[in-house]
Design a protein around this nucleic acid. Structure first.
Length: 622
DNA sequence: CAGTGAGCGAGCTTCCGCTTGACTT
């Protein structure tokens, strides 16, 4: 007789099967096996009655009706068959809320007659697996409660509010705990853009040098005039007014100054010279969210495409699991990254101590490690260039570089900043500034030599060039000075990358759903792609306004993180899940529940209709 | 008598999160 082990993913089952040997059969549940069906998929005798609206009986303890999903029927049959041949059952689904629930559903559906163990592990290595097998526990009922609460809440939210959208806005529309705030992000940003008032300001750009040789020249920007700081884009509010005490230079003033400075009597002297060390740390290894962001930005993949390419890499054993919220590397992976970096770039380019990265997302569940090349010895992109093609190779390359770089040394260099005093006839004193960074030690940049977009923009502003050597008090040659006009620009629209980043920040959605949520927003017609930008449509505006008016709490950006706090209480046994759902759905004290909000759409004008409805309403048959 | 049209009623749309194929374009 064998022992049956059930994990979530078939690829994982294969690896673990190898570690556990012939006494164990390892199969996969392939994700969730049961779910709450939509009401139209309920058995005929349940279509009328307490389950008809949600497939959850809200009047009887929020009892959910579960059914084995169509796609899982074969899997369940296979598992049942295997269980008959087994004398023990190990439920080895992921150690997070969803994984615990899958274990419980497996238990409910398989009805095992043999001893059952709940087994959890964080790393897929022989040691970790064997240790997990020898240290099992029971299914954590409170954690399952928390998952069911989450699931039921999402059903109530979606299926109570979507019909409101059909009535008020258009057929086929939808609302949900994740998609509605995500849509609202797009709408809020568009509102900011519409309300935005552009402002114009000017500054001067001088070309100066230690002599008139072009090689010894550099550009410097006017930053202070007569002791007052000159306004830049950051000094303007969104309504076009100046929000600081900075001085705004007009075109006329700029032209007058340029003309004065072009007089031969103008002198330029080095007022101060400062050199500061510059260091940059490598980025953390990829999580789902950061992988999507980088692939969208650097490879021009869509979020969905990124996931499907990563899936292929995972299934063929090239990378670790691609749906994760943890940037942590296993000890083996850390060693693999370090020894590969030492071999390729030299020992001095690698950080002295292993770098450990921790997740910053408060809603992270961290059931998996970071996305990285698979194995205890990483294969380089070059080694794989004959087996991997196009997209797959490019994504592997990105993952490999990021992982190796994450264990390398900081890049170091110096940033020199020089302040120049420009004295022109009949003009206030003008201070110009130039700075240049020189990287003297590349460290992680050997592997991952790419700066983030923010840095690139910052560099545009101050042309990152090497400065010639100078001393304080030195007189410089002014080769040219010109005025430059600028206009403030509204905040940019979200791209897939920046939306995923924002969603992770406020804790809505999960690694397995980021790309699906964006697809939903596009499918519903809430947004259209314009280049890389997600542009909200008028439908999104209508839906968001309706949500804000009638379900303000539910589209607040804090709703999910507050829900997570409450689910934690349920998971710890400090709160009752039925009480929680009751308050959410039926309300309590002064707080309107979801049901009341949906039925009386926050419109005082409808109060009369409500009263009429109640008096004319039929009572339950007696 | 056949074709038209008003009026009525039934059926449909929808959530999030976990995991892969089996489908079509």
């Amino acid at each position: 007789m064998k022992k049956l082990v059930i994990v979530e993913s078939p690829a994982k089952a294969k690896t673990i099967g190898k570690y556990l040997g012939p006494d164990y059969e390892v199969l996969a549940s392939v994700g969730h096996i049961r779910d709450i069906p939509t009401p139209k998929d309920l058995p005929a005798d349940m279509k009328k009655g307490p389950f008809s609206q949600f497939a959850v009986d809200v009047n009887n303890g929020f009892t959910p009706y579960y059914a084995v999903s169509e796609n899982s029927k074969r899997t369940v049959a296979d598992l049942k068959r295997a269980l008959k041949e087994a004398d023990e059952l190990y439920l080895a689904t992921d150690e997070d809320r969803e994984g615990e629930a899958i274990a419980w559903h497996l238990y409910e559906v398989l009805k095992p007659k043999v001893p059952v163990h709940r087994m959890v592990f964080h790393e897929i290595t022989k040691d970790a697996i064997e240790q997990a097998r020898d240290n099992t526990r029971e299914i954590d009922r409170s954690l399952v409660d928390a998952q069911e609460t989450r699931r039921i809440l999402d059903r109530l939210y979606g299926f109570e509010i979507s019909p409101v959208m059909w009535r008020m806005v258009g057929r086929g529309l939808s609302a949900g705990r994740v998609q509605s705030p995500a849509t609202r992000l797009l709408v809020d940003r568009e509102r900011e853009r519409i309300a935005f008032v552009s402002a114009d300001y000017w500054d001067l750009l001088a070309t100066v040098g230690t002599d008139s040789q072009p090689a010894n020249q550099f550009h410097a920007k006017l930053v202070r005039l007569g002791g007052a700081k000159l306004a830049t884009g950051n000094d303007f509010a969104d309504n076009g007014t100046v929000k600081s005490s900075a001085r705004v230079l007009t075109e006329t003033e700029a032209t007058t100054l340029v003309n004065a400075m072009r007089e031969p009597a103008t002198t330029v002297t080095v007022a101060s010279l400062e050199t500061k060390p510059h260091t940059r740390r490598p980025f953390a290894p990829f999580t789902t969210s950061t992988l999507q962001q980088e692939a969208v930005k650097k490879l021009k993949f869509s979020a969905r495409q990124t996931m499907s390419v990563a899936q292929r890499l995972y299934e063929n054993g090239y990378i670790t699991y691609m749906r994760t919220d943890s940037p942590n590397l296993s000890v083996q992976a850390m060693n693999a990254a370090r020894s590969q970096a030492i071999k390729l770039y030299g020992e001095d380019q690698v950080s002295e101590k292993p770098r450990i990265y921790s997740g910053k997302s408060k809603t992270a569940q961290e059931a998996h490690e970071a996305i990285r090349p698979a194995g205890d010895v990483f294969r380089t992109p070059d080694e794989l260039s004959s087996v991997l093609r196009g997209e797959e190779l490019r994504l592997y390359d990105l993952i490999w570089k990021r992982t190796v770089a994450s264990q390398m040394a900081d890049a170091r260099g110096q940033t020199a900043t020089v302040t120049l005093a420009v004295d022109a006839p009949a003009s206030p004193r003008a201070d110009f500034v130039a700075s240049g960074t020189v990287i003297t030690f590349r460290g992680f940049m050997n592997a991952y030599d790419e700066t983030s977009d923010e840095d690139r923009n910052a560099q545009d502003a101050q042309e990152d060039s090497k400065l010639p050597s100078m001393t304080e008090g030195q007189a410089l040659v002014l080769a040219d000075v010109e005025s430059k006009g600028h206009s403030t620009v509204p905040p940019p629209r979200y791209t897939e990358a920046s939306l995923v980043k924002k969603m992770e920040e406020i804790g809505i959605g999960r690694p397995s759903t980021y790309s699906a949520t964006i697809a939903t927003i596009l499918d519903r017609g809430y947004a259209v792609m314009k280049g890389q930008a997600l542009v909200p449509t008028w439908i999104a505006f209508s839906v968001t306004r309706l949500m804000e008016q009638s379900f303000g709490d539910l589209v607040s950006y804090e709703f999910t993180s507050e829900m997570e706090d409450d689910l934690d209480k349920i998971a710890n046994g400090d709160a009752d899940w039925r009480d929680w759902l009751r308050q959410f759905y039926f309300g309590h004290d002064s707080h309107r529940g979801l049901k009341d909000s949906a039925e009386n759409l926050g419109d005082i004008g409808r109060a009369g209709r409500k009263a009429q409805g109640v008096s004319a309403g039929r009572h339950a048959p007696g």
